[in-house]
Design a protein around this nucleic acid. Structure first.
Length: 425
RNA sequence: GGAGGGAUGGCUGAGUGGACGAAAGCACUGGUCUUGAAAACCAGCGACGGGAGACUGUCCGUGGGUUCGAAUCCCACUCCCUCCGCCA
């Protein structure tokens, strides 16, 4: 949520920011209108309440003296009716105002490239060179079939398309990668491991910005009022919802969770195999930081995510997403894309975002600054990293002409000493 | 699932219709004292909103209700604890 003071004091900056990301700038006018009405109602009803409080106190005193207060009580009753009518109006206006405020996306950071679609994203670095093969590289689907690493057909039988079933070494590879990444972040990058619930309520989803906008993209258990998490960002960022954090910033947390996404309307493009699935595993990093330091914290978050890929020996590039391509709650976002030879394309495996105080304001996450003043923290998160496409890259980059797959060295201990996946038949 | 108990400020905890935004203690901050610290003593110390300001409103788990007036009474819900049942 944006600071309403910014909309009052500098509406043009807000309009400009919203336009730069292709969002509706007219909401600014709705907000200002509701805000003005609301404040007028508040002033009025609060004056009345002040009067009522005074008179009620007088009644109490008069009764103690044994005086008759019937007439004055009747007049206060009338005031009460006026007050409750005005209160209802004020509440309705506040609800309207909140609904609009919650639907407004974050403003792009001053360093976020301006542009309305992905063509304006900037590639800011590339690590390694796409691997050259002297045979035609297979896709992960073919490799997985040959080596019996996953079974999409049977998964579809029990659930449906887009829910992967990993088998044997494939399942173990999934587990090994999770363990490798958590170990790296907790022992070398300074993160505390947490293991959160995989379902969250609507308040939590609103806090991080999934609701109200993304309601259609989430699996919803209506009977229980719960949603399956689309990312660990939701439970982990909501750990401190409606709190004043009483430990020293920054707080670094990392978590493995499965992620569930309906990917509504995404059918058709990039949906084969593991490229786009409804359930996937991910290791996530979340930071709560001092607002003055969030720019630097985003850079180090990116470095932490890159470290995973460098140790796995993979070729990747980093994009700075433009204003039209960053997510609803983000102010600045880096995407990391892995090179996948079988796809002959780059695959997004990580988004590292700075939300500044956008989520903190929605979720009421605050801290005390050096003067003891309560302020909103800045929140950040980054995938560190998402599993299915990482598996795709490892399989497609590690494949040999004989159909086997050589695993990255760092994974060997996590694979029980296995260096190469071969067909066991 | 059943029975009972509970939810009050950073923490512990008092308060059962009126002077209570809330006793007391702890913690914290400032001061006195001290070479310094501790102790003692004094003072301060919730959040959020409206108003240029004086000032003012809201908040005692959440939402409704009763009342001139609700932390306090009534209803519903949520969460926590204890016991019983069930269960990985």
């Amino acid at each position: 949520m944006l600071d309403i003071k910014l909309l009052r004091e500098d509406p043009d900056t807000v309009r400009q920011g919203l336009k730069s990301r292709g969002a509706d700038a007219d909401v600014v006018d709705s907000v200002l209108e509701f805000d003005e009405i609301r404040r007028a109602l508040l002033t009025k009803v609060e004056a009345l309440k002040g009067d009522r409080n005074k008179v009620s106190k007088d009644i109490g005193a008069a009764k103690k003296r044994g005086e008759d207060t019937a007439a004055i009580q009747a007049s206060v009753r009338e005031m009460g009716e006026k007050i409750s009518a005005l209160d209802k109006q004020a509440q309705a206006t506040t609800d309207d105002l909140n609904a609009v405020m919650l639907s407004i996306p974050n403003l792009p950071h001053e360093t976020t490239p301006i542009g309305l679609d992905e063509s304006a994203n900037e590639t800011i670095k590339q690590h390694g060179e796409p691997k050259q093969f002297d045979f035609k590289p297979l896709t992960h689907i073919e490799i997985g079939d040959n080596l019996k690493l996953f079974d999409f057909a049977r998964a579809a039988k029990m659930t449906g398309a887009g829910f992967p079933l990993f088998m044997g070494v494939g399942a173990k590879l999934e587990r090994a990668l999770i363990q490798f990444m958590l170990d790296l972040h907790t022992t070398e990058h300074g993160y505390l491991e947490v293991s959160p619930p995989f379902l969250c309520n609507a308040d939590a989803m609103t806090g991080t910005g999934q609701l109200p906008k993304m309601a259609d993209d989430m699996y919803n258990l209506a009977e229980d009022g719960l949603y399956l998490i689309p990312t660990a960002e939701v439970p982990v960022t909501n750990i401190y919802r409606e709190e004043i954090i009483d430990q020293e910033l920054p707080v670094y947390l990392t978590a493995y969770t499965p992620c569930f996404r309906r990917e509504a309307g995404a059918a058709g493009k990039m949906t084969r195999g593991l490229l786009r699935v409804h359930q996937f595993d991910k290791v996530e990093m979340v930071k709560y930081v001092d607002p003055a330091k969030s720019d630097a914290e985003l850079e180090s978050l990116l470095v932490n995510a890159e470290d995973v890929l460098q140790r796995l020996g993979l070729c990747y590039r980093v994009l700075s997403l433009c204003s039209g391509d960053i997510s609803f709650a983000a102010s600045k976002c880096y995407d990391i894309e892995l090179w996948a030879p079988g796809q002959n394309d780059w695959l997004e495996v990580s988004s590292c975002s700075n939300f500044r105080d956008f989520q903190a304001r929605r979720a009421g996450i605050r801290y005390r600054d050096e003067n003891g003043k309560v302020r909103f923290v800045h929140t950040l998160n980054g995938s560190g990293v998402a599993l299915p496409r990482l598996v795709v890259a490892i399989l497609e980059n590690g494949q040999q002409e004989d159909g086997s797959v050589v695993l990255p060295d760092v994974l060997v201990p996590y694979m029980g000493g296995l260096k190469k996946i071969v067909n066991s038949e």
